[in-house]
Amino acid sequence: MEYAADLWHLFVRLVRASVRMPVFVVISIVQPILWVLLFGQLFRAVAALPGFGAASYVQFLAPGIAIMTALFGAAYSGMGMLADVERGVLDRLLATPVARSALLAARILHAATQVSLQSAIILLVSAAIGARPHGGIPGVALVLLAAALLGAAFGAFSNAVALLTRRQELVIATMNFIVLPATFLSTMMMSGNLVPPWIRTAALFNPVNWAVVAARGGFEGRWHLLPRNLGLLAAFAVAAAWLATASFARYRRAA
């Protein structure tokens, strides 16, 4: 109970900091909308390709962009941790009796919450331009769960990189290095039927693709896609959280 209270207070602080930056709020809402509209237009003809296997490109794209948003939204979560380090806020929090893990868990929870909200907006905008969630409300909830899990995993990973390197530049470089290849080695924008076999194989081992397939499964109501991909995604999130925890312990030992 006390742990939950600690976590809540720390989480509220992060949410408050986010919503106090109006520019941040506007960008994080407008950007995913732009992606849906832009990619939806750019690749509209793709859905007509033989074997693509979707009713329309927007229908195909919506869950993919929801996951892309989650990935990009969480990948730089570690920057906030470094800002706390530089401002002395982290030291001050560490000198209180608060559970060490709650300091990290609050950031991961914050990343997961933020990207879930962004993904929800994506789905709403997609619905407005013709996408239909065949999985109904449970399906939409599962899309958001997949986004949240991927957000938690990359949020944790980003914090691990931040705590290990303690350099904002290295967080940006590392995450950039990972995020784009992970996006394109997946079926986020292109049907698995049409990508080269080696990409199809690589995607099988790509956590971003697990999230994409799970989200698409939920959105389309193809439930059989969910257990395996959500399971792998959850395991990945746990592994990332473990890495972040170990990195945090190493950071504190080096003090």
């Binding site: 900091a17 930056m21 401002r87 002395g88 030291d91 001050r92 000198a95």
Partner: peptide
């Protein structure tokens, strides 16, 4: 601390 621990936001 020597560095301020105030959260500026």
């Amino acid at each position: 601390a020597q560095a301020s621990g105030v959260d500026p936001t």
